[in-house]
Amino acid sequence: MLSAKSLFQEIIDNDESFALFCSIAAGGESQGGWENARIAALVPQSEHHLAPKIARHGADEDKHGRIFNALMRKRGLAPVPVPRDTDYTMLLERAGIGLAHDRLRADHPLTVHDIVTYLAHSRVTEQRAAEQMELLRKHFAGHPDLGRAVKMISNDEDNHLAYCHEELLRLARAGHGRAIQQTLRRCALAEIRIYRDVSLAVMAHMGDILGWPRARSALLAAGIHAVYAWERFAGWRRMVRLEMPERRDALGGPAVPAPEYA
């Protein structure tokens, strides 16, 4: 029977597909680390209190990248090139979601509107990340090699999502509510489309590596399209809701180290 657990298990059990999975994940996390570090350095004076939280967010993302690389090293594997059609962060930037890298490479302070854009983008993408890691945690928390890493990353993603909720609500109270909702909606609708495209690409590459029969690949593709149809109809709304999180000031302290994955 085809299930999320059996699918992930098959990918994890094969060295080539596992290396691709970890390389894709590590690349995205490392890119997120760089983006957050640059944003932290360019925060406007009026939002200076956010700088350490954004830096903490970036440090967490860098840590996640190191974790995925360490998981490969543990199996004697090296990172592999990430196919461009699986590069989620690059495709989001190309779609105009979040802050452009050219903007982040410049040494000009960001505006409050830029911070709204950053937080709205993060609110949407962290929702996706938290859901994905929760799925992995559900099925692999007890895995001898992956369990600790999955639980650590999942907890971090939940913190990131809580932080986005709390800071966006603060900015909404400060008068930015309309801009926040408009940006969230635009980000969410673009993200679900890009997530569909990346999912199709990842499954196609995995299918080539693992030799999946055409019927199985077609079934997986149909499932991905069905998820997109639901998200386009109603599911995207979960990505734009703002609620005060149970975890308050989730990024208020230093990043939790992971020396075993250094």
Results as ranks from 00 to 15, higher is better:
3 S>I: 02
3 S>L: 00
4 A>F: 10
4 A>K: 00
4 A>Q: 05
10 E>L: 05
11 I>M: 10
14 N>I: 01
15 D>T: 10
16 E>H: 15
18 F>W: 07
19 A>V: 03
22 C>R: 15
23 S>K: 13
23 S>L: 06
24 I>F: 14
26 A>Q: 07
31 Q>D: 10
35 E>R: 12
37 A>S: 08
37 A>P: 00
39 I>E: 00
42 L>N: 12
44 P>N: 08
47 E>T: 05
48 H>P: 02
49 H>Y: 14
54 I>H: 14
54 I>Y: 12
59 A>N: 13
61 E>S: 09
67 I>R: 05
73 R>G: 12
76 G>V: 01
78 A>N: 14
82 V>L: 09
82 V>H: 13
86 T>H: 04
86 T>Q: 02
91 L>F: 04
92 L>S: 04
95 A>I: 03
97 I>M: 10
99 L>D: 00
101 H>Q: 12
102 D>N: 10
103 R>L: 00
104 L>H: 09
104 L>Y: 10
107 D>E: 06
108 H>F: 09
109 P>M: 01
109 P>Y: 07
113 H>L: 02
114 D>N: 13
115 I>L: 06
118 Y>N: 07
118 Y>I: 00
126 E>I: 02
127 Q>W: 15
127 Q>I: 06
128 R>V: 08
128 R>P: 05
133 M>H: 12
133 M>T: 03
133 M>Y: 14
134 E>A: 14
135 L>S: 09
136 L>A: 01
137 R>E: 07
140 F>T: 08
142 G>K: 14
143 H>W: 09
145 D>I: 09
146 L>Y: 12
148 R>G: 08
150 V>Y: 13
151 K>N: 11
160 H>C: 01
161 L>H: 15
162 A>Q: 05
166 E>N: 12
167 E>H: 14
169 L>W: 09
173 R>G: 00
174 A>Y: 10
176 H>V: 07
179 A>E: 08
179 A>C: 03
181 Q>M: 08
183 T>L: 04
185 R>E: 12
187 C>R: 03
191 E>S: 10
192 I>L: 09
198 V>K: 10
199 S>E: 15
200 L>R: 10
200 L>K: 11
204 A>Y: 12
207 G>T: 13
211 G>L: 08
213 P>I: 00
214 R>G: 02
216 R>M: 01
222 A>R: 14
230 W>L: 06
234 A>L: 12
234 A>R: 15
235 G>D: 05
243 E>L: 08
243 E>Y: 12
245 P>I: 02
246 E>P: 06
246 E>T: 11
247 R>L: 08
247 R>G: 00
249 D>S: 07
250 A>M: 03
251 L>I: 07
252 G>W: 11
252 G>E: 00
255 A>Y: 05
261 Y>N: 02
